[in-house]
Design a protein around this nucleic acid. Sequence first.
DNA 1: GTTGTTACTTACTAACTAGTAAGTAACTCC
DNA 2: GGAGTTACTTACTAGTTAGTAAGTAACAAC
Lengths: 213, 213
Amino acid sequence: MDTQKTPTPAAKKRSAAAQERLDQIVSAAVRLINARGFNGMSLQAVADEVGITQAGVLHYVGSKHGLLVEVIRRYYDRSSALDDYLSLFHPGGAFEGQSPKIPEYCRLLVAENNSQPELVMLFQMLNTEAMSTESPLHEYFNDRSRGVIEPEPDVNWSVPEGIDATEAISCALAAMYGLEGRWVARPDEIDYPAEWSKFEDILFPLPLWEGYR
Amino acid sequence: MDTQKTPTPAAKKRSAAAQERLDQIVSAAVRLINARGFNGMSLQAVADEVGITQAGVLHYVGSKHGLLVEVIRRYYDRSSALDDYLSLFHPGGAFEGQSPKIPEYCRLLVAENNSQPELVMLFQMLNTEAMSTESPLHEYFNDRSRGVIEPEPDVNWSVPEGIDATEAISCALAAMYGLEGRWVARPDEIDYPAEWSKFEDILFPLPLWEGYR
DNA sequence: GTTGTTACTTACTAACTAGTAAGTAACTCC
DNA sequence: GGAGTTACTTACTAGTTAGTAAGTAACAAC
């Protein structure tokens, strides 16, 4: 029964405080998942970081699985400069009629991920744990992996002759994932966008991709 | 004090039985790490799979960290068709004076890994957990990651003009890692070597890499 | 000013965690 | 046949795990 009529300003204020607390909980959970994995993380550790009791954490998320759901939700609530790029080529967009370029798309993705190392690490950790059929995220990440290779089926990419656009995206994203794993493991040693630009010379070598980058 | 003089056949037999038991323990541990990660796996679960008590497991490995050491050891005791390939180009090898080719090297790596999905998954899992500085394997995997990009510094790869061999290997291995993650997550859906051959067309496109593949 | 809701806390449970200590049965060595 | 070693087991400890139940203090609604 949803009795949520016009919420009073006071109710809004309280709910905002609650939202802030939930954010603290999710932030702590992300840090702990990155450090130990979801299986290795405990509700008590989350509670300690936030400064409340373990039962207090459960008050917000219900169960450990509920916490995982909130963490995933946070991952998806990121802003995506990417969808913005692709939508430019859709009917009504600024570049309607033109075709997007894979290297350009990749560069945007790299730039975006470069500003969110914590979420990149979270993705690597959960995605890896989800390899196991035992993981509650197994099907979820498998579906995602299938879908991401063809992010926008109605877009026709501008690629050189003899190059399969779908394969090029698939391969580029695999390389990106591999590089991201190295980067988040030693962020001080690796300049992610700089390394990517070197990868670009391999993935999209210049005589062939001239005009398509 | 090492009192290991000529071991009697009986001692050998006993030690062989012990080795077999240790193998069972390590095999169970690999399965459980793949399913839940090292942090999520317990000595009791290993013991249950082997059919002995948890204290029995500790008799062999001393501690949970000791079990991790044994698991890592198993990973490195794999045969490597790869080193064999590279050694052919060393002084005294059959191909002395010639240069190895990166795509060929990659194909061997893919073929070898394709026959060991369990160890590939183990690598993905431990490597990911080792992203965290908290992991006992953090430095270990970082060193490995640095080294693997230049597997044999004294080999001069045969590559097309304008291509940086080190970057090509680095990029190819990143893509391989990314593809392997997809493969072990859904082995029934993905034909790893077949997918790799499509990646080859992107990483080493034919007009450019003609004669270097 | 009562009634309800929110945001927690304390107190608890039952199961599980890695690790230790002290056995014991089987076998080997000499 | 006695001494030592191996491959375990039983029994235990101290700490941690997710989750439940029953509060309670602060505030809001009316």
